[in-house]
Design a protein around this nucleic acid. Structure first.
Length: 270
DNA sequence: CCCGGAACCTGAAGGC
DNA sequence: TGCCTTCAGGTTCCGG
């Protein structure tokens, strides 16, 4: 579920909780496939005893820099959560528990799509090679190089993490609404200025959502189990059949790039 | 190169 | 109440 703003919220919570500098006394894995590599058994052995040197976000990944030249890459996919709650009783959806010397952190994931990858720092660039520049950082010229002249629908390209990382289904729809662009528009049919607007709107939506602690649509919860507040600000996502906040037209839904897409047929003409 | 569909999983919601 | 279908914030793989 989490897109860039939700992952950013998790990272900020981890730092605020004082994870940086802490030692991982123990890591227990209850669902083996949560660990992409190495094996779940080797994972527990390799993680134990290392301390956290850094925590940051890259696209939708949480990246833990660990002592001893290892990095832990965490992707929460659709329903993954990292939680640190007082008096928490783990339920059946908790698939891993990390003991940061008295600070327990729970990995909970209803749909079990999330993945942990432990890599040697030497191969970390390779492991993340498919992740493009962060959408909040990327400069227009670089982004245009990657996206310009392609025939695919703009929405599909915005979702492509190799072009720019961080946007997901909710924020792509929100950004395209703000830019006044139909999600199915082929990228090569857009002018340089329209593309500039789309990137600007993407960044604006991201910053705004971060300020509101992300979006809780189904089950996003931050570190302390609290929902994000951006849902109230959504202009099109999940509002099919409701009136456009700008012009009053009934919002529509169609499938683009295999994903449910929400838009205003008047504000975003095809 | 591009696209659609399936797979990976579980649960919520709506129709009958 | 229960059964069935559809849908869900993501990514990857496979075939046409």
């Amino acid at each position: 579920m989490p897109e860039l703003p939700e992952v950013q919220t998790v990272v900020e919570d981890l730092l605020r909780a004082g994870v940086a500098g802490r030692r991982i006394a123990r890591a227990r894995v209850h669902w083996r496939r949560s660990i992409a590599e190495p094996s779940a058994a080797a994972f527990g052995r390799l993680v134990r005893g290392r301390s956290v040197r850094s925590v940051h976000r890259r696209g939708k990944y949480v990246v833990f820099g660990l002592t001893g030249g290892y990095s832990l890459l965490v992707h929460l996919r659709m329903t993954g959560q990292l939680l640190s709650l007082v008096d928490y009783r783990p339920d059946r959806h908790v698939h891993a528990v990390f003991d940061f010397e008295g600070l327990p952190i729970y990995y909970r994931d209803m749909r079990k799509f999330g993945r942990f990858t432990l890599v040697d720092d030497a191969v970390r660039p390779t492991a993340m090679a498919h992740v493009g520049p962060d959408v909040l950082q990327v400069r227009f010229a670089e982004w245009l190089d990657r996206i310009g002249g392609r025939r695919a629908p703009i929405k599909a390209l915005l979702l492509d993490q190799g072009i720019a990382a961080g946007l997901g289904n909710i924020y792509v729809d929100e950004a395209l609404f703000r830019a006044g662009v139909h999600p199915r528009t082929p990228a090569d049919a857009l002018s340089r200025e329209e593309l500039r607007t789309i990137l600007r709107c993407s960044k604006e939506v991201m910053r705004l959502a971060i300020r509101h602690g992300g979006t809780t649509y189904i089950n996003f919860a931050n570190f302390h189990g609290n929902p994000g507040n951006f849902r109230r600000k959504l202009r099109v996502y999940g509002r099919t059949g409701e009136p456009c906040r700008r012009c009053g037209t009934v919002l529509e839904r169609l499938v683009v790039g295999g994903r449910s897409s929400h838009f205003c047929p008047v504000c975003q003409p095809e």
